[in-house]
Design a protein around this nucleic acid. Structure first.
Lengths: 330, 330
DNA sequence: GCGAGGTGAGGGAGCGCTCCCTCAAAGGAG
DNA sequence: CTCCTTTGAGGGAGCGCTCCCTCACCTCGC
């Protein structure tokens, strides 16, 4: 039950190892009759080249790592967008003929393991999904001399990234609420140690400031429960508010519930806009208006950037635009 | 910028390659002073063993593939449970010191690529997530002589699996509705070419039959839209029905919306129970009663089964129990 | 004091592949 | 007809590691 090697195929076909290798790798300097006899031997024996041997000598693996750096509770990987990202990346790599190794780095221990693995020449490049701008992993990986692309803005030097236009998206949401004639527009933020959250807050603030309005801010942490709680607090602090921009959809959904319980009608009394446009945004009653972050496109762009980096191509950061999806809640 | 090899480390430490290898691999037959001098050389040089070379000679890769066999529209991988499964698998492999290669097989072409990859000795085993019992991939992979575990029941011979107790879960739901005093209990099924869907339907039927009641069945395909449509049809066919068991939560959410539009109150007029207990089930208004499928536990069990198989251990199929999570909709 | 047994280091083959180099054969030019 | 160029096959080194085997040395028993 031992798998055949190049040598066995060569013997069967009556040619040299080199010729078989040439055929397998699709080189053109092979006479057709040799090609045919090799292919037949390959099929008869069910030969498939050994990956490890090939990797060893070529110093390539055609494998890219997707590293998700994330606390155990899972800000990223519990996110409904996680699977969309993984799928998009997977498809793109498929097209490029590459493989995907997925690694979750949830603790310092696993972070070390990730670094070891990367250092072990198992992959040709790394796509890093880390929300914290201060995450030490991007820099650590880049130091290995391996191509690294970040799925978000990162403070690490020399790590190209693909980011959302978070501030722009928030501005989109707030301007939409202004156009709807809303006067007192509050926001529920994400955890401010995250880029995303800060940028979305900034976008909200700047847009309001331009109109001379005052910010009304409640802190959340991107979870549904925190959205509900923040909404309660907002209602208490400022009972007259007539609109809320939540920095993500989960918190918007939580806020929706609080408003419902408080007897406020949405959107008549209070309009609400979320961010991310997750699947569940269209399930709520009323359906949620949301800033759509094109996660799949972002993932595709990140893969392209990484492949380009590996080929020594250009490595300019990419900023993805957002669009507003208007539904019933505003 | 070339990475150091075993030989370089050996030279630096003034010992043989063998000794360095022994230290690296934690063998005990090494004198402490040799161990120390080797470790120091390793740290000074930042040595990390080359994975390909190691894989080549040991014929192990410490890597397992998770293969998701799924049509492009993505019944599985769009599922909210997908990321939960991936995370659970990833964590479990992390604990076991293994790596995870994720492959989506969405077309015949990519299926071939998967087979090639598996045949290329890149992985030690395969965890297969394929919903269609008739999927050719399980058998094809098992034929490679590599350990394969299916995440669902499969018709392939000799492929151990970890499955949900779908019929039991459906029975749980229906019995709950009966206990609530419901008389006319309908069901919305999933696509019947899937095991899951058939088994859940069977569970519904058997439980009702035991009470002498008649089945009321509408076909869905596990999507929210199909749930909404099936619900419309049920209301038309049997306006007096007072309960619905939907074979998954997405369809239950669709049905909820239809009922809302039709002016039926939930649960007063019509009670509804879903299946899977996805995150969104608790967001709906009213919150959805659902049969909880312990996906994370199932994933963990599957990984254990696979690891056991690789070690030549027992390979009995595992059936996971469900429990009912009662919320507001019933 | 000597041989047997045990401990632990070193030497080196070989995993399966690629790729450089050599060389044979064929074809074309002078 | 000879010489040179071109085309394409074969030979073999070597990628970095593990693991078997050998062998030196030490300890212990008689």
């Amino acid at each position: 039950m031992k798998r055949p090697t190049l040598e066995v195929v060569a013997a069967r076909a009556g040619v040299s190892k080199s010729s078989v290798s040439r055929v397998i790798n699709g080189e053109t300097t092979v006479a057709p009759q040799i090609r045919d006899v090799v292919m037949q031997a390959v099929h008869e024996l069910g030969y498939v080249p050994n990956g490890a041997a090939r990797n060893l000598v070529t110093r390539r693996t055609d494998t890219l790592a997707v590293v998700v750096s994330d606390p155990p509770q899972g800000v990223v990987s519990d996110d409904p967008l996680f699977s969309a990202v993984v799928r998009a990346v997977s498809r793109e790599l498929e097209t490029a003929g590459k493989r995907l190794v997925l690694m979750l780095a949830e603790s310092d221990q696993s972070r070390t393991r990730v670094e070891q693995y990367i250092a072990g020449a198992h992959v040709d490049g790394v796509l890093l999904v880390a929300l914290h701008g201060t995450d030490p992993l991007p820099a650590a990986l880049a130091r290995q001399g391996l191509p690294v692309v970040s799925f978000n803005r990162t403070s690490a030097q020399d790590v190209p990234y693909v980011a959302l236009d978070n501030a722009g998206g928030a501005a989109l949401a707030v301007r939409h609420l202004l156009e709807r004639g809303r006067r007192r527009i509050a926001t529920i933020t994400g955890p401010l140690e995250l880029h995303e959250a800060r940028e979305r807050l900034d976008g909200y603030r700047h847009t309001l400031r331009d109109t001379g309005r005052r910010s009304i801010v409640a802190l959340g942490d991107f979870t549904r429960a925190s959205g509900a709680e923040a909404m309660r607090q907002l209602l208490e602090d400022d009972p007259d508010l007539d609109a809320v921009f939540a920095a993500n959809d989960l918190m918007a959904i939580g806020a929706l519930r609080t408003l419902h319980q408080a007897g406020r009608r949405v959107p008549e009394d209070v309009a609400i806009v979320g961010f991310d446009d997750i699947e569940a945004a269209s399930y709520t009653t009323p359906a949620l208006t949301s800033v759509s972050s094109p996660m799949a496109d972002q993932a595709t762009a990140a893969v392209h950037l990484l492949l380009s980096l590996i080929d020594g191509g250009p490595t300019d950061p990419v900023i993805m635009p957002n669009e507003l999806v208007v539904r019933e809640s505003s």
